[in-house]
């Protein structure tokens, strides 16, 4: 798996969307590598890692294989906030600089994602961590989606296109500061998630029994919600809402490796998630075609059939 990941990193860095000879170090090729290819590859790795890790944690927490960061409504919150910035911000003249707008979009995505997460945390005190919280997330997502549609409706064509592109997801929008922020938050989130794996594996037994084994179940559940919010929120802010990886990868990982050692499971899950993100980027930008697919399109088009295949071929 590690080997596969390295190969994918090399392919995505040097061959997608066009071949660059790493040994022929002209200024041109160096600039391309440093300012476009490396940021793209690191962004894809960070996004794949973060989304698959948060998906795994939520699926285990809710004991529901369909759970993922997006079911909690995190992406709807981010989309709506970004929509308001793009459509509303354009009318304020000093926000028109591209640089300021990219900060504004990331900030809006972040605030939107965390606003919804905060709401989910408040509601979790009332509902506990049952399917009701997921249902709450889905309904909130629908309501926010209606507002989103309203914004789309009143937006002018240029803003609408920008909004639509953001919603399709991309690994190419990170520049130096945003890339560092993304990587910093993802590293923190991943380290955090590893510390939650052992108590999470005990919670297989049900929260009551886990509590009698000394697991502070409420505290662990709260931490999982916060950690997944951090990971999914930051990725959504910088790459747009990418739904597929967070839901599909943990299922694939568990089918391939059935274990009670959740640290190893998380590691495998992360490797698969990062590889999946790279594969989507590679196949969506093949040099032989003259077009580039947005990440949500290639993720569903390519990831979907892979997941279906594994689903149909499993032996139990």
């Amino acid at each position: 798996m590690v080997f596969l990941l390295v190969i994918l990193i090399l392919i995505d860095t040097f061959c997608i969307p066009s071949f660059i000879n790493p040994f022929n170090d002209t200024v041109f090729s160096e600039t391309i590598l440093a300012s476009i290819r490396f940021p793209k590859v690191f962004t894809a790795l960070a996004a794949g890692t973060a989304l698959s890790a948060s998906g795994l944690m939520l699926q285990q927490l809710f004991k529901n294989p369909l759970a993922g960061p997006y079911v909690l409504g995190v992406s709807s919150g981010a989309s709506l906030a970004v929509g308001m910035v793009i459509v509303g911000g354009a009318s304020i003249s000093f926000l028109n600089s591209i640089y300021i707008q990219s900060i504004g979009i990331a900030l809006a995505g972040f605030i939107g994602a965390f606003g919804i997460l905060l709401l989910a945390l408040l509601v979790s005190y009332r509902f506990g961590y049952s399917y009701l919280l997921l249902l709450f997330g889905v309904v909130v997502g629908q309501i926010l989606g209606a507002f989103q549609t309203l914004i789309d409706y009143i937006a002018n064509p240029t803003d609408l296109k920008q909004l639509a592109l953001w919603n399709m997801g991309s690994f190419n929008n990170t520049i130096d500061w945003s890339l560092y922020t993304l990587i910093l938050f993802v590293v923190i989130g991943i380290v955090w998630s590893f510390t939650l794996m052992k108590p999470l594996s005990i919670m297989i037994l049900g929260n009551d029994v886990a509590y009698t084994l000394g697991v502070k179940t409420k505290q662990v559940s709260l931490q999982i919600l916060m950690c997944t919010g951090l990971l999914a929120g930051v990725v959504t802010a910088f790459c747009g809402p990418i739904a597929f990886i967070g839901m599909a990868v943990p299922n694939v990982a568990r089918m391939l490796y059935r274990t009670a050692n959740f640290k190893k499971l998380l590691l495998l899950n992360i490797l698969i998630g990062a590889s999946m993100a790279l594969v989507c980027d590679i196949l969506g930008n093949l040099p032989i075609f003259n077009f580039h697919l947005p990440i949500n399109v290639s993720a569903a088009l390519i990831g979907g059939p892979i997941v279906l295949l594994i689903l149909l071929k499993r032996k139990y």
Partner: peptide, 11 residues
């Protein structure tokens, strides 16, 4: 307790 365990990927 007599609650069933909702997990299939463990021995």
């Amino acid at each position: 307790n007599s609650k069933k365990i909702e997990e299939s990927h463990i021995r």
